[in-house]
Amino acid sequence: MHPLLNIATLAARAAGGNIMHHYSRIDQLNVEQKGKNDYVSEVDREAENTIIQTIKKYYPEHHIMAEESGIKKGKKGIRGVSDIEWIIDPLDGTTNFLHQFPQFCVSIAVREKGKIMHAVIFDPVRDEMFTATRGRGAFLNNHRIRVSQQTTLENALLATGFPYKDFSYIDPYMNSLKAFMTSTAGIRRAGSAALDLAYVACGRVDGYWEFNLKPWDIAAGSLLVLESGGLATDLKGGENFLDSGNIMAANPKLFKEMAQTIAKTIPAELRR
């Protein structure tokens, strides 16, 4: 295992321990509402601090982009002197966690010179550690994973995320949802973008699409998909998804048909 990936897994597992320590005492947590349907708890902050402290112990010079304490619009992250950047979501699926709905995870990616090189997604409920290093494949608990072999939408199971904070694009999104609902075996909306991408990577779902995400939601998951033999792009088929927040991922056999459906239902100006 690459040294950076090793530290990422240590940090993710430690943060997962923080999260599960509080899982049975949700009613005792301090929870703040950052915006409409956008919550942060003391667990998010505790887990994030655990991850940052683990990274800084070994790599104090590295830059960190983190959901609660790092880069936001108009703000800088925890700036180091290195060209290596850690992209962290300490608890992807906070709303699920606060309702004790067991679908949430820790997501950590490492970007070097603008390219995602390492990825970890840890599901502490199921004790599932998804890992990837660019060019070396993707793994689940140290076992190699691959995307599914599904070839048609008709028999495909897809994952997605509904709009929940910004509803300005709800109509085009509903157009895409309707098209996929009527042409597939089913749609799942579980509430964690990172785990949705991990599930594409290991073949539990055949494809995934969503709008308006943050880099920490999808950075690690996108590399998992690529390293498991899948494709992950923005909605125009480009590589701008970390900036636009719009992403589509699937196995190569299904990807073209998904892309065609997106192109028919989503206006070009939104497919960035």
Rank of each mutant, 00 (worst) to 15 (best):
N30E: 15
S82E: 15
I51Q: 10
M65P: 09
A109F: 02
P163M: 07
L29P: 12
F104V: 02
N142C: 11
V81C: 12
A259M: 10
H22K: 10
L270P: 04
Q28E: 15
Y59I: 00
G221I: 03
I84F: 05
G135H: 00
D92G: 10
M181V: 11
F162N: 15
E85K: 15
F180Q: 11
S176E: 05
Y169M: 06
V200C: 13
L98E: 01
L254W: 04
I187N: 09
L10I: 14
R144D: 02
S148G: 15
Y164K: 08
P267Q: 01
L213E: 10
G191T: 08
D38C: 08
A15M: 06
Q100F: 05
K56T: 02
K76H: 04
V43C: 01
P163G: 09
L235I: 09
V147N: 02
R204K: 12
A132G: 07
P90E: 03
I87W: 08
Q149I: 06
I64Q: 03
G238L: 07
D206Y: 04
A263H: 11
L197P: 01
T50A: 10
E239A: 14
K264C: 11
L153W: 04
P90Q: 02
E257M: 02
H99S: 12
A198V: 03
I266G: 03
W209C: 07
D127F: 05
A11F: 12
G135E: 04
K34Q: 05
G74P: 14
H118S: 02
N240P: 00
G80Y: 15
C202Q: 14
E112Q: 08
N96T: 03
I51S: 13
V106M: 02
W86Y: 12
L91S: 09
F139D: 05
N175Y: 06
I88Y: 01
I55F: 07
I84R: 07
P163S: 09
L235T: 08
S107D: 04
A190E: 00
K73F: 15
M117C: 11
L4W: 07
T184Q: 13
N175H: 13
L254M: 07
A185F: 09
V43A: 00
G221P: 00
K72V: 11
P267R: 01
D123A: 05
I51K: 14
G237R: 06
W209R: 06
D234R: 13
M181H: 12
R136V: 05
I78S: 14
K113E: 13
D83C: 14
P3C: 06
D206R: 01
G186L: 09
M258L: 14
T152C: 13
N37F: 01
G186Y: 09
G35P: 04
R272N: 13
I266C: 06
D206H: 03
K36M: 15
W209F: 13
A47G: 07
I218N: 02
D206L: 01
A179Y: 10
G245A: 12
N49A: 07
K214P: 03
G137L: 00
Y39C: 07
D243E: 13
S244W: 14
G93R: 08
D206G: 02
A249Y: 05
T151F: 06
F97K: 08
R144C: 07
I51N: 13
I55M: 04
T95N: 10
T9V: 12
I247W: 04
T151Y: 03
K165A: 13
N175P: 04
